[in-house]
Design a protein around this nucleic acid. Structure first.
Lengths: 228, 228
DNA sequence: TCGCTACTATGACAGTGGTCATAACAGCGA
DNA sequence: TCGCTGTTATGACCACTGTCATAGTAGCGA
């Protein structure tokens, strides 16, 4: 009961958010996760519901039970999951850096993709990008889900930049630029089957980002770069 | 005869390349153009062949005649068209600038999209991005077409940068960064229904681009920023 | 055992997609 | 008129897709 509603509203326990790979708890979570995986590989249109259920090893009959509003609802939740995932990753990237700098954060964000592409091939892209391309015009609720995902992601990055000493007014624009460049570089990387565009973005953008730091970093412990 | 083959190989007269809007010459060109238009709005999967023929006001029977390899061929040619179009635009942007600067070129590239979004709404995206998202994994020939489109576009921008005095080794990386940022900003703009990400990219990236100029611009007349 | 609820199973339906087979037509040279 | 070629017309086929109706099972409280 409250489990389902909670998931829909994103009120569940995010602390043990499932990783990008691995078996999740319930069939519902697995289907949302599988939907995100398939969407980022094949696009929304080419991803079928039966395919999602099969990939999640969830019973097909559960589709209409957990997602009474059909494919649109499933896609929206997959996009929402991706947005939360991307936002939460930011805090972990920061924790992994010896001394946090904007260029270091961006390098980590890029490295997540170069690592995947070099180890698993260029099959996958960003599910939010795929949903935007395929549904922005047709399904407004999906467009809103993508917008929310970008907003959450940008908010996390901007908060991290502010923590590092970037002036408040410049944090959001720079975060937007980082995510724009990353998304575009992902596209080019997939088309070229090469990480060149990704590493280029990191190299060229790094100095610009670090130059935006004006005051010393707020080196408190684990701080609020996460939303909600 | 040679007309068809010529089109496939891209050997036709590019000088009077059709604009982004307007009626083209033959039914074949119209279908390629319409395919690009529909793909950039709805994505590849949601674009039907019958729909392309109808949009182009071309007879449905011509589809299998001009595109014997089916949808994949049509999509590939639409992507190729988009790549040539984007590449050719660069020279025109340069011509429109009072004094050519890298930031000015990028601002023009961005402005093409903000103008469209403000006058026609946020329905359309980049057809090359859509093809990459939807087909990069499934149809390798389409992936190659997208790669070629990005390469041509990047080559045109890089050549323009070099003409403006950017050192040869930095031109391609910077061109890649410009196109990455632009593509990502287009995505975010569609999701947000706002040109914010686009104008942000232009504003934040401008100084970085201009700072790469080391020697005075080559202000010869119309020079070779176009490929092939 | 009954009843209630959460969940699963399955088959059908109506629509649409790309593709193909086949035929017709228009123009032209001989 | 015949034949040839480039084009168009049309209808059918088959493999799906998302969705729905319906029925079934598992578990639990009373």
């Amino acid at each position: 009961m409250t489990t389902v509603i909670g998931w829909i509203r994103g009120e569940h326990d995010e602390t043990r958010e499932a990783g990008m790979a691995g078996a999740e708890r319930g069939p519902r979570e697995r289907m949302v996760f599988s939907a995100a995986q398939l969407i980022r590989r094949e696009g929304v249109g080419a991803t079928g519901m039966r395919e999602v259920a099969a990939h999640a090893r969830s019973p097909r009959g559960s589709l209409q039970h957990y997602f009474p509003d059909g494919k649109e609802q499933l896609v929206n939740e997959a996009v929402g999951w991706a947005g939360r995932y991307a936002g939460n990753r930011v805090a972990r990237f920061l924790a992994a850096l010896p001394e946090p700098t904007p260029s270091g954060l961006f390098a980590e964000m890029v490295r997540q993709w170069t690592d995947e592409y070099e180890s698993e091939g260029f099959d996958g892209g960003c599910p939010v990008a795929a949903a935007t391309v395929d549904c922005a015009r047709t399904a407004d609720s999906t467009r809103q889900a993508a917008q929310a995902a970008f907003t959450r992601w940008t908010g996390a990055v901007a908060a991290a930049l502010t923590d590092m000493g970037v002036p408040e007014e410049r944090s959001r624009p720079l975060a937007t630029l980082m995510i724009s460049s990353l998304e575009g570089a992902i596209l080019i990387a997939r088309a070229e089957r090469s990480v060149r565009a990704l590493t280029t973005a990191a190299r060229e953008l790094g100095p610009l980002l670090d130059a935006a730091v004006t005051r010393p970093a707020t080196d408190g412990g684990p701080r609020g770069t996460a939303g909600s």
